[in-house]
Simulated scan of single mutants.
Amino acid sequence: MIIREIKDSFIMIRQHDHAFLSGELIKHFKPSLLKSDAFFDDALYAAYQHDRSWIGLDETPIWNDREKIPYTFSDYPLLPKLAFYKIGVDEIERVNTYASLLCSLHFSSFFSQSKNKDCLVFLTGEARRQMELKESFPDLDEELLQQHFRLLQFSDNLSLYLCLNEPGADKEDEHPWFKNGFQNTEMFHPENQPLMSRWVNENEVTLDPYPFDMDFDVSLPYKVVTKGLIEEMGIAEAYIESDMEEKKIFFHQ
């Protein structure tokens, strides 16, 4: 679950909805910024499906007693998170081999600096998976694979940008992850700089340089779950009882 706390409520966004938004963004990515159009549909599938491991977990939000907020994707207990990451990539692999390779690379990148033994076991398993999946593509273009991997990371981060920021936030008030642009997007910038985004107003976003081939809009489903309702019935029931809402966001140059 993606959580943004406001005065008397929590904005709660399911991970799979955020991932769908990732796909909707990348659907409009300029083809000229990639080495070729080979495997683009597979990379797009990876963006849409990369967080399917959270579908079951997000059905029942759980409470973080220490922080006094619902658990989020970033602080969710490690062992179940690792187990469900593996399950999610397994499910993607049964449908699309190339997409599962991208998702495996994506999740492995989260723990690349970790010394935790459970993370190291996860990384070892995913490295084995990646090696086996690459054998399915004897003429694999490693440069294009790297572009698609960075594109998946960008789609994830741009969607998170929409989820974690107050709509219309000034640059200095943005979530700290994004104030200096999107990491690992230099290959999509003509001057080898990170792509930068900003809110034009509470309904519009633009990027510099603009990496999409047209203006378009996306829809973000979310729930506003009040702290009073959580206190009354607990986080799981409060989430169920809260109505799903939708935010439309326009992208333009």
Rank of each mutant, 00 (worst) to 15 (best):
225 V>P: 08
66 R>Y: 11
20 F>C: 14
182 F>S: 02
207 L>R: 01
25 L>F: 03
147 Q>A: 05
193 Q>H: 12
15 Q>C: 06
231 E>T: 01
85 Y>N: 00
49 Q>N: 14
48 Y>M: 04
229 L>S: 09
146 Q>W: 07
120 L>F: 12
44 L>T: 05
20 F>A: 15
169 A>K: 00
242 S>G: 10
162 L>Y: 02
193 Q>S: 08
193 Q>L: 10
146 Q>M: 07
166 E>C: 02
130 Q>M: 14
126 E>M: 07
218 V>K: 04
121 V>E: 15
199 W>A: 07
15 Q>S: 03
214 M>T: 15
77 P>F: 03
4 R>D: 02
132 E>N: 13
157 N>T: 10
179 K>T: 12
145 L>T: 01
251 F>H: 02
119 C>Q: 07
130 Q>A: 12
198 R>G: 10
215 D>H: 15
63 W>F: 01
245 E>D: 14
11 I>H: 08
8 D>A: 00
183 Q>H: 14
32 S>F: 02
105 L>F: 13
53 S>E: 00
233 M>I: 13
185 T>E: 03
11 I>P: 08
109 S>H: 13
205 V>D: 02
68 K>V: 09
146 Q>T: 10
38 A>S: 15
239 Y>R: 03
84 F>C: 07
193 Q>C: 10
34 L>T: 05
227 K>T: 00
17 D>K: 07
100 S>R: 02
104 S>F: 09
18 H>N: 07
48 Y>V: 02
248 K>F: 07
4 R>Y: 12
61 P>F: 04
68 K>A: 11
94 R>M: 13
227 K>Y: 06
119 C>L: 06
78 L>E: 00
118 D>T: 12
35 K>W: 01
134 K>Y: 09
238 A>V: 01
32 S>M: 01
108 S>T: 13
247 K>T: 11
176 P>E: 03
67 E>K: 15
53 S>W: 08
189 H>I: 04
8 D>R: 06
192 N>C: 04
57 L>H: 06
2 I>L: 00
133 L>P: 04
65 D>I: 13
118 D>L: 12
212 F>G: 03
39 F>C: 04
63 W>D: 06
250 F>Q: 11
228 G>R: 11
122 F>I: 09
81 K>T: 08
20 F>K: 14
43 A>C: 08
19 A>K: 04
115 K>Q: 15
207 L>S: 06
147 Q>F: 03
